[in-house]
Design a protein around this nucleic acid. Structure first.
Lengths: 138, 138
DNA sequence: TATTAAATGCAATTTATTTGCAAATACTTG
DNA sequence: CAAGTATTTGCAAATAAATTGCATTTAATA
């Protein structure tokens, strides 16, 4: 995703291409890992009210532009979802380092498991995190 | 797990077999599904302070007697972990109904994926939830 | 039964997130 | 390109989830 393209992306999704939202998307692209609201706010050059940030994150997640994940700390993490393939997270339980991972055969197994999932008629999404110790912490 | 056995269980784990903790374990056994702190508190015959409940839940989870899970609502859920086989959850995004599920081949895939997990030295646990619509809501 | 460390309850605090509303601003259309 | 309008933003305040400190109670054990 090129820098200027966020304007188009936002507008196509029905949002206004405000400096705040563009800065948010650019930051998340640059960081390329799940960030908490506090981290985002700290790193954003253009300062935004916390409430505005929450509202933007919520709306953009709803529009599938962002992806939200719970990483076992009591607060949500957000990352860019467009332009990234489906993935999950490895979380270091010591230093909280987060790493992406994906595994095709795991996805296959997940899809199958979802089909077998007894009484449920449809499975629309899933969340999966692996917890362990990263190279530095072990 | 028979009723009276919780006393022994607690003591073996280094806890005191207090009426509060025993009542908590008995309730979770009876309910047999992930409950929120508020739900537990409401259903407990013997009323307990919220703080006490939080502390018990935390300690018992630490001791692997309980299992905590995030089900995509902004608060933790707890269920008995002893005497239950490893499982995950199906969550209805409409009515919040929760159902257990487990799938051996999925576990195999998860273990393999964990091994391949690049830089991480060890994977100790994982969390997996499937979200969809239950039979009634679809 | 007395001792003591663990568990409890209360008050208050922290952290995460949400709501209401008025002011500011991006996009449309003339 | 100026005006109108609906969206977005910021501020203040509220709500929700979880935690901390401390004094009191209580289960275990000697």
């Amino acid at each position: 995703m090129q820098k200027g393209e966020y304007k188009t992306l936002l507008q196509k999704a029905g949002f206004r291409a405000t400096p705040g939202k563009i800065a948010l998307l650019e930051l998340l692209q640059k960081e390329d890992k799940p960030l908490t609201v506090a981290e985002i706010q700290k790193k954003l050059k253009r300062k935004q009210d916390t409430v505005t940030l929450y509202r933007s994150l919520e709306a953009l997640t709803e529009a599938n532009i962002l992806m939200r994940s719970e990483l076992g700390h009591g607060h949500a993490h957000y990352e860019l979802s467009i332009g990234k393939k489906h993935h999950h997270h490895l979380v270091c339980t010591n230093c909280e380092k987060v790493e992406d991972f994906s595994d095709p055969s795991l996805e296959t197994a997940l899809t199958k498991a979802a089909k077998n999932a007894s009484s449920f008629k449809s499975i629309n999404s899933h969340s999966l995190e692996l917890f362990g110790l990263c190279a530095r912490c072990s």
